[in-house]
Design a protein around this nucleic acid. Structure first.
Length: 278
DNA sequence: CCCCGGGACTCCCTTACGTCA
DNA sequence: GATGACGTAAGGGAGTCCCGG
C-alpha cells in the first residue's frame, strides 16, 4: 500500500519557521468540545515546520518497495498523503514536482528517515478553531483557501479537521457517558423506590376491611390496584399515582419535551431531566 | 435500468513525535 | 538524564456516496 507510485510535490512546502508562543492571550489550540478544560501551555513556543509529506517519500517509497508490511515503514510512510496529494493535483494547486521539490526535501529531510512532527502556531490553531466553530467540515475550496491562508498544505488542514472532529466526538462521548451514568443511578434509585411503593400497596391491599365498612358490598380497590404494578408511576413531587401504559411511556420517551399543544396530564418521572413532568 | 469499477470523502484506529511532570 | 503519560499530527484501512461506462 505504502509503495504506490509516489508523486513528489513541491507545493505547500511551507517551511514556515515561525516562533509562536508570543501570542499572549491566544486561545489554547485544543478547544475540546463545548467545555474547554484545556491544559495547553499558553506560552508554548511553537516551531512550525510545515514539512511536506513528500519529504520522506523518496526514502520511504523505496524502502518499503519490497513489499514490507506497513509497520516496517510506519515511521516514514506517506502512502495516504501521496494518494491524497495526487487528488489535490487535480485541483490545480500543484505546480511541479521536480527540482524545487527535491531541494526542499533535502532541506527538510536532513537527518534522514525520521518523521518530524508539525506543531501549529497559536495563530494557526486559533484560525483553525474559528473555522471549525463555523463548520466542522470543509469543502475542497475552503480547504485550499484556508491552507493558503495558514501557509499549510491542504492535507494538513484536512488532517487537522479530522483530528478535531475526533476530539470533539470523544469529548461528547465522555459527556454522554456521564449523563447515562447519572441516568442509570437515577433509574436504579427510582426502581428501589417503586419496589418499596409496591410493597406498601400490597400490604394495603391485604389489610382486613374495618368492621364499619363490613357491608355486603366489597369496597372497590383503588384504580391503581387494578393495574399491573409495572405500569404504575408515581410523581415524586406530588406523590400521586398515575397509570402507566403507552401514553405515559410515550411521554417519557419524549424526554419531557412536551410541545405547546400537549394535553397529557400524566404524572411521570423523567430520569433524563431528573424532574417530574407534572 | 442495473451493475461495476474507481475516485472522493470521511471515520476510525493506530503510530510516532514532542512536551511535561 | 531517564521515563511514562499525554496531546496531537499523520498514516492507512474500511465504509459510503457518486459518477461514468
Amino acid at each position: 500500500m505504502a509503495q504506490e507510485d509516489v508523486h513528489l510535490r513541491d507545493d505547500g512546502l511551507a517551511l514556515g519557521l515561525s516562533l509562536g508562543g508570543g501570542g499572549a492571550g491566544a486561545d489554547a489550540p485544543a478547544h475540546r468540545g463545548s467545555s474547554r478544560p484545556s491544559s495547553q501551555c499558553p506560552l508554548e513556543p511553537a516551531l512550525t515546520l510545515s514539512m511536506p509529506d513528500g519529504a520522506a517519500a523518496t526514502a520511504t517509497a523505496t524502502a518499503s518497495g519490497g513489499g514490507g508490511a506497513a509497520h516496517s515503514v510506519s515511521s516514514l510512510s506517506v502512502g495516504g498523503a501521496v494518494k491524497r496529494e495526487r487528488a489535490e493535483e487535480a485541483d490545480g494547486e500543484r505546480v511541479s514536482s521536480t527540482a524545487a521539490g527535491a531541494r526542499e526535501r533535502e532541506a527538510d529531510d536532513d537527518d534522514g528517515n525520521t518523521r518530524k512532527k508539525l506543531r501549529l502556531t497559536k495563530e494557526q490553531s486559533a484560525l483553525l478553531e474559528d473555522r471549525f466553530r463555523e463548520h466542522s467540515t470543509l469543502n475542497p475550496k475552503q480547504k485550499v483557501a484556508l491552507a493558503k491562508q495558514l501557509n499549510l498544505r491542504p492535507r494538513q488542514v484536512e488532517v487537522w479537521f479530522q483530528n478535531r472532529r475526533a476530539r470533539t466526538k470523544l469529548k461528547q462521548t465522555e459527556v454522554d457517558c456521564e449523563i447515562l451514568k447519572r441516568c442509570c443511578e437515577t433509574l436504579t434509585e427510582e426502581n428501589r423506590r417503586l419496589q418499596r411503593e409496591l410493597q406498601e400497596l400490597r400490604a394495603l391491599k391485604f389489610v382486613p376491611p374495618p368492621s364499619s365498612a363490613a357491608s355486603h358490598q366489597p369496597a372497590e380497590p383503588p384504580f391503581y390496584m387494578q393495574l399491573p404494578a409495572a405500569t404504575l408511576t408515581i410523581c415524586p413531587s406530588c406523590e400521586r399515582v398515575g397509570g402507566g401504559h403507552a401514553s405515559a411511556a410515550k411521554v417519557a420517551a419524549d424526554g419531557g419535551k412536551a410541545g405547546p399543544g400537549r394535553t397529557t396530564t400524566h404524572h411521570f418521572f423523567n430520569p433524563f431531566t431528573h424532574s417530574a413532568a407534572c
